[in-house]
Design a protein around this nucleic acid. Sequence first.
DNA 1: GCCAACGTTGGC
DNA 2: GCCAACGTTGGC
Length: 163
Amino acid sequence: MSKTRRRYWLFKTEPQTYSIADLAAEAGGVGRWDGVRNYQARNLLRDEVQVGDGVLVYHSSADVIGVAGVARVVRAGYVDPTQLDPESSGFDRRARPEAPPWVSVDLRHEETFGEIVAMAAMRADARLAGMLVIKRGQRLSIQPVTPEHWRRVLVLGRRAVAT
DNA sequence: GCCAACGTTGGC
DNA sequence: GCCAACGTTGGC
């Protein structure tokens, strides 16, 4: 793991469960990103997501769907404790304690956009053409983001603040 | 709440 | 290992 190039990601969350405001409200703005229960997303969290990487926090199944702000990875992949906790909604009864499959990372909140960069606006933006999240049927909850798309979403997010 | 898209499961 | 049934995601 000698790569030093910063990478960018989009993490999906349902804000009624855990929003960017919830992340910002954590002690130090640092929260655990848990509950990922898809193998492809798990593999990215475990193998690719590194400390220092940038994360677009995306609200799905919300009044306004889109990118709500930005966070940074402050701890790389580790065992998601919720899979072994019967009290947790993340509990997975098939997870064996000696080899738990699911992975968490920690994020630190960096910025909440004044207005969400809405899905519709992203679809309409020529510079975001090809971005995974705007593809129909794209369900992956951890997605890679190109540096160009990252910068563009930040421009749109900061522009929305100005009104 | 609908339903298309896609991932997972399990019978064979 | 195929693939139909089933479950989940997530935009609308």
